[in-house]
Amino acid sequence: MSKAPSGNGHHDHDHGHEIDGGLAHDIPLFARRRMIRLLAGASMVPLVAACTSDESGSTSDSASSGSSSSGSASSGSSGSDCEVIPSETAGPYPGDGSNGPNVLKESGVVRRDITRSFGSASGVAEGVPLTVTLTVVDQSAGCDTPKEGAAVYVWHCDREGRYSLYSDGATEENYLRGVQETDEKGQVTFTSIFPACYPGRWPHIHFEVYGSLDDATAARSIVATSQLAFPKDVCDTVYATDGYSQSVTTLGQLSLETDGVFSDGHEQQLADMEGSVEKGYTATLTVPV
């Protein structure tokens, strides 16, 4: 299907069924992030050389890999290790008015359960149950201070790889999109389904952080735009179930290291996962802004 040009120019685009020119626009962003990491690493050399303290605690990430959950231990980073969540493309299907439809100004978009369409639409997204909890924290305070009263807008594709409002067969739907205000812990929780893996992209969820619920529902003043990635072992398990067969082949052609968005580093964006196909999964991620 054809794509409308971006309305305000603040989003780059990844195409739902191929890697198009949108990812080329992200290359400068990737390069800047790599340069920042290189410079940061160089600045730490004198400190490392001067340090004589015990480094036994530095293996905590590898030790944690034996736990029952999957994901990134760095999602709970704080203090000097705290970094702002990487800025990523919103893709061609944001639904925030920057590229066509604007679901954020519609009554009913503020909700926890995003599996169903709202308003005049009635579709339901089927799939393995997924609960997503994002914790928004203040990076300038070392990631120890939750951002109460912020807002988060999330959206992702359905089990067939379609985006509501845009994709053929789902243009009249608005499921798998929703907004919530962060609580005193800086958290928002959405009830959803596990998304498909479509050609050219690793399985992911898009999200935008706003300073307030008023800003979110007015589609103004985005604080951060990023994406959540899923661990491969969980994807393999989910995609072995009914309804996800097309994702098996697609996932086999991709990796986090070759994905056009996550290839330059995904440590802060890889969700911690728990659960099962039968009981559903939970995905958690800390989002420093």
Rank of each mutant, 00 (worst) to 15 (best):
S75H: 00
S75E: 05
A50P: 02
E83A: 07
R33M: 06
S80G: 04
S77T: 05
D61Y: 07
L29V: 14
A42K: 06
P28G: 04
R32I: 06
F30H: 15
S80I: 06
L23N: 11
T52I: 08
S62E: 13
H15P: 00
D14G: 09
D81P: 01
G22A: 06
L38A: 14
R33H: 10
A50H: 13
C82Q: 06
I27A: 14
R34Q: 10
R32D: 13
S77Y: 02
S64Q: 12
S60F: 13
D26P: 01
G22L: 06
A73L: 06
R32Y: 08
C51I: 04
S75A: 04
S69K: 01
A50I: 03
A50W: 03
G16V: 01
A49E: 13
G66T: 09
S56I: 01
S74P: 01
L23D: 13
S77N: 14
D20Q: 06
A31V: 14
A40G: 15
G79M: 03
A50G: 15
G57T: 09
S67M: 11
F30D: 15
D26M: 12
T52C: 09
I19E: 12
S65F: 02
L47P: 00
S74H: 07
L29R: 13
R33P: 00
A40S: 15
A31Y: 05
R33W: 02
R33A: 08
C82H: 01
L39N: 10
R32H: 12
A40T: 10
S69Y: 00
I27E: 14
S80D: 12
H15T: 03
R33K: 10
E83G: 01
G71P: 05
L23E: 09
S43D: 13
H17W: 03
I19D: 13
